[in-house]
Nucleic acid binder design. Structure first.
Lengths: 177, 177
DNA sequence: CATTTTATTTGCCAAATGACAATTCAGTTT
DNA sequence: AAACTGAATTGTCATTTGGCAAATAAAATG
């Protein structure tokens, strides 16, 4: 992609600062697209029992949006919230779509985004199926150090799919090594 | 989409018959795209212990392909195999890409496909995290009756993320109701 | 159809995780 | 500093699931 093309694209994004705990997306609203330059965010929803389930953590340089809500322009079932103060750049679907139509390379890039997300979801599904909670915990602290530092353990627990007390025990065992 | 457009698209697909156990995709190859008109298929890969894990079941009218491999034209990590005799229509990435470039509606449709897959993966990840194996089993036999009828239980077990014997116990409990 | 192979079920015990309550810890407020 | 609040840890016990081996059932083969 030429520098010019990139500048053209970047130009359509809006800077947005979020302070800790501020919401980028609330359940029922339609998701915009956000590029996270600084800070941490998380997405969560509620399970059948009404308990919060963290579905994703986001570190800097990541794209943050509810795929279904953004691309289909439907109400989101997720909440996305800043865990720390954040600096980000956002764009609406409408604008991004204009870019897609006018810039073929960006269209390809957009498809790449989706595929990447798909791959990481598949990976996570598999991990939940064939790794123990302890292994998943290890993976998380290895791969996502920053996240781990700032995030409350109860969020990590629900992300991993275990109770708070199980996570606590896992950590106790883990720290012995 | 006009009938003409649709005919144009369909025209680029090739009919393909697969007999039971035949492979549509083998690990290490690059995935084509397949539309399954009749029959059942499954995708699987191997976990760290070397055991087979079924990652997906496909019933008729479904699209069958390894997203990462197809869209990024990279080697697949999955195997996709016919569970019963199948009638299908396939297309290569190259040809589909030509269609994407020449038919904007089809491009949109293609994006929709990806988003749909993404949504269903997210759903599945969540299900693994906050539903019991028994609930997931119930869901499977409710939503995918045909699959359930023809598929070996060991495949279902690895898809659900439980051992064969656990699934067997789940079924025993379940049949009491 | 008899034999062989593979899939499924079952029993037994161990390990992992959940549920719930009590306690400790850390941060905030007054 | 004391009181308060929510987070994290810990203990206890129940439940779920795994691992393994044996028994049975079903499917494939000659």
């Amino acid at each position: 992609m030429s520098l010019e093309t990139i500048m053209n694209i970047v130009d359509h994004f809006e800077e947005r600062k979020l302070s800790k705990n501020e919401f980028f997306l609330k359940e029922g609203k339609v998701s915009d697209f956000l590029y996270l330059a600084e800070g941490l965010m998380r997405a969560y929803t509620f399970d059948l029992k009404g308990d919060e389930v963290t579905t994703n953590f986001y570190a800097k340089n990541r794209q943050v949006y509810d795929h279904a809500s953004f691309f289909l322009q439907t109400a989101s079932q997720e909440n996305i919230q800043a865990i720390t103060d954040c600096l980000a750049y956002t764009i609406t679907f409408e604008k991004m779509n204009t870019l897609f139509h006018s810039i073929p390379e960006y269209r390809e890039y957009g498809r790449g985004m989706l595929v990447k997300e798909l791959v990481s979801f598949k990976k996570r599904t598999l991990a939940v199926i064939n790794k123990s909670a302890e292994q998943r915990y290890e993976d998380l602290i290895k791969d996502d150090k920053e996240i781990f530092q700032f995030v409350q353990l109860k969020y990590i627990a629900s992300y991993l799919g275990v109770t708070n007390s199980s996570l606590s025990r896992i950590r106790r065992e883990f720290s012995k090594h």
